[in-house]
Design a protein around this nucleic acid. Structure first.
Lengths: 99, 99
DNA sequence: CACGCATATGCGCATGAGCGTAAATAGATC
DNA sequence: GATCTATTTACGCTCATGCGCATATGCGTG
């Protein structure tokens, strides 16, 4: 699949988009934190993160018991621009409530 | 659903994304033209355009036997920015072949 | 009104995606 | 090694979505 389509599919899901928004603070977040903040089950969160990882949006790192996810620093600029535009629309448009 | 998610879902489909790319030349295109150019069945094209229309990406206009679709001029700037970023990534990244 | 072209829609099917539950894996600590 | 926490994965279910085919609808022309 085209990278752009893979990226769009990965983002077109509420939990994943929310996770991306959290991870876009540039810091690392473990799955358990995302689970707590987003209020989803642990297994669901794990799978969603796997989708984002496969799409190249995030990278993970083992740290003791935890797996830390963060924004993929290797993300191509054109794809980063898409994500930035999406996140910007979340902060700007009428769906601000979801912040 | 949040506007951003609706938009992402609408774009995350090959035929629809290709249609958006065509319509983003600013001109009107009838369904029959999209069918010919994109090589999909008529009913499929009609349904895909309905999805794009519902997402607010495009608008349509009856013109005799034809229905002319074009970019929605009322599209909010934040959403237009998303589409621009996506189309830009298509022209820039390794999936240029799909042009 | 019959006919033809353009478009939309109803229907049934196949596939994919998200979900919860439960079990497996991994690492830390005792 | 037993146990606890964190994470992933296997399984089965349900629902959404894309598809083809056939049919309806809309519009122009004769």
């Amino acid at each position: 699949m085209q990278p752009a389509l893979t990226l769009l599919s990965a983002l077109a899901e509420p939990t994943r988009l929310a996770a991306v928004r959290l991870l876009w603070d540039g810091r690392e977040h473990c799955v358990c934190e995302l689970v707590r903040v987003l209020g989803v089950t642990q297994s669901r969160m794990s799978r969603h993160m796997a989708v984002l990882k496969q799409a190249g949006v995030v990278v993970d790192r083992r740290d003791a018991q935890w797996v830390r996810y963060r924004r993929n620093p290797e993300l191509p600029a054109e794809q980063a621009a898409i994500i930035d535009a999406v996140l910007n629309s979340l902060n700007t448009s009428s769906d601000r409530r979801a912040a």
